Amino acid sequence: MRFGYVLMLAFLLQVAYVVLDDFAISRVRERMRFGEKIRELRKKKSLSQESLAKLVGITAPYLSKVENHRLDFGEHPAEKLIHKLASVLDADETELLLLAEKVPPNIRQRLFERPEIFSQIAELDDEELDLLILHILDRPKQV
């Protein structure tokens, strides 16, 4: 019977699929950490910690703590800084928010609109969730 729920919930996870592009889906089990991603993006843009820190309005030591997962008050910076980092680094803001374990606004909105559906999704085990994702990926995209 749970697979019936999987099919019923497929339409909602279509929203998640749009947000969780191929990168996120392929990295469900081997996810890059937020700080590692920031470091990778910074180096790709040939920016020093000092120059990136200045561009987003923080100190280089703070950026170093972000990249090395050594923040004093939590694992990830505030959403406001994540938005700035995404903008300066030309990065996918949704991807950075998810890596920072923050709920992007479009997903948060759907969650509050349909909490019962997300509760059902949360109860799926990994195998059922993988089946649901495969079902979504196999569906023709609606225009």
Rank of each mutant, 00 (worst) to 15 (best):
Ala16Met: 07
Asp90Leu: 13
Arg2Cys: 06
Ser64Phe: 09
Ile58Ser: 01
Asp90Gln: 07
Thr59Asn: 04
Val143Met: 12
Arg42Asn: 01
Arg114Cys: 05
Lys80Thr: 12
Leu71Gln: 11
Lys54Phe: 08
His135Thr: 13
Ile25Cys: 10
Leu134Ser: 15
Gly4Ile: 07
Ala100Ile: 04
Thr94Gly: 07
Thr94Leu: 01
Phe34Gly: 00
Tyr5Leu: 14
Asp130Leu: 13
Leu97Gln: 02
Glu67Met: 09
Asp125Gln: 13
Glu30Tyr: 12
Leu7Ala: 09
Ala53Thr: 06
Asn68Cys: 05
Val6Trp: 02
Tyr17Ile: 13
Met8Asp: 08
Glu67Asn: 03
Ser64Asp: 11
Gly74Leu: 00
Thr59His: 04
Phe11Gly: 09
Lys80Tyr: 01
Leu97Tyr: 05
Ala86Leu: 08
Ile107His: 02
Asn68Asp: 01
Ile58Thr: 05
Leu47Asn: 00
Gly74Met: 03
Gly4Ser: 15
Lys65Gln: 07
Pro140Thr: 05
Phe3Trp: 08
Leu85Tyr: 05
Lys37Val: 07
Tyr62Val: 00
Glu30Trp: 01
Leu52Trp: 02
Ile117Tyr: 04
Glu93Lys: 15
Phe112Arg: 15
Glu36Ser: 12
Asp22Tyr: 14
Glu40Leu: 11
Met8Ile: 12
Leu12Ala: 11
Arg39Gly: 00
Arg31Ile: 09
Leu124Cys: 08
Met32Asp: 14
Asp126Tyr: 03
Leu55Tyr: 03
Ile38His: 01
Glu95Val: 14
Leu52Ser: 00
Lys141Phe: 08
Ala91Arg: 08
Ile136Gln: 12
Gly74Val: 01
Gln49His: 00
